[in-house]
Design a binder for these strands. Structure first.
Length: 224
DNA sequence: TCGACGATCATCT
DNA sequence: GATGATCGTCGAG
């Protein structure tokens, strides 16, 4: 099976269910980080907990390149207990707490020790909406983006926290799978969000999104 | 030991 | 558009 193309039958999955999803293999993650970030668009995030399942489609990502990237937690090889899992081999989860309030979910990329990863910023609910709403402490009619339109919201909807830091993303209870391929003319790029401190890296176009998707965390700048 | 800050979000005006 | 919430983490001392 071509890791980039999947089995070719994804389009026939009208209503994807957890047991029918095929996890992305480790070779998917062992590539250049911005490539992985772009290719994660349209893939599914699957979560299993308490015999219930949640599925979302990834619509927005950001690449963090590691050593050379001032916005990365691995800038200059910085190594502390918090970021240990960021240095695992590609295909593992790196989860951290931000602003003392919110969790952020990353997929580690590249070989072990590099410290590069892709932040999952926004996703579109596919299955398990009521459980996600419950996890988010919301009820009633929810607007697009209110469930998982942002990295903190996404983690809350998935019930993901530091307890899952470092787990492999290829098996339940949390994995990424083949999904709905996104054509290149449907991809928009732009500078990353919330890294004003990062010097030159501020402008690097390492944020990727599905053009026009209603579940993006916030608009992309024009020219993108 | 302490001070500053952050890959955010909800709730205001 | 602006602001407060809230606390783990890290570097400085």
């Amino acid at each position: 099976m071509d890791p980039l193309q999947g089995r070719g039958d994804e389009g026939s999955l009208l209503r994807p269910t957890l047991d029918r999803l095929v996890p992305l293999g480790s070779s998917f993650y062992l590539r250049e980080t911005s490539e992985v970030a772009r290719d994660l668009l349209g893939r599914y995030i699957a979560r299993q907990a308490d015999n219930r399942s949640i599925i979302l489609k990834i619509v927005e990502t950001e690449a963090y390149l590691g050593y050379s990237d001032r916005a990365s937690h691995a800038w200059k090889g910085r190594r502390t207990p918090r970021v240990e899992s960021l240095y695992l081999e590609g295909g593992h989860a790196y989860i951290y707490l931000i602003y003392g309030l919110h969790h952020c979910l990353n997929a580690v990329t590249g070989e072990a020790g590099l410290g590069s990863a892709v932040l999952l910023r926004a996703a579109e609910p596919v299955d398990g909406e009521s459980l996600m709403a419950q996890n988010r402490n919301r009820q009633g009619d929810l607007k697009p983006g209110e469930i998982a339109g942002g990295p903190g919201k996404l983690c809350q909807a998935l019930a993901v926290d530091r307890g899952l830091d470092g787990v492999p993303l290829q098996d339940p209870p949390l994995f990424l799978s083949y999904g709905e391929p996104v054509a290149s003319d449907e991809v928009i790029r732009g500078p990353r969000v919330g890294i004003d401190y990062a010097g030159d890296a501020v402008e690097w176009p390492l944020r990727f999104g599905i053009k026009g998707n209603a579940h993006l965390s916030r608009p992309f700048p024009k020219s993108g």
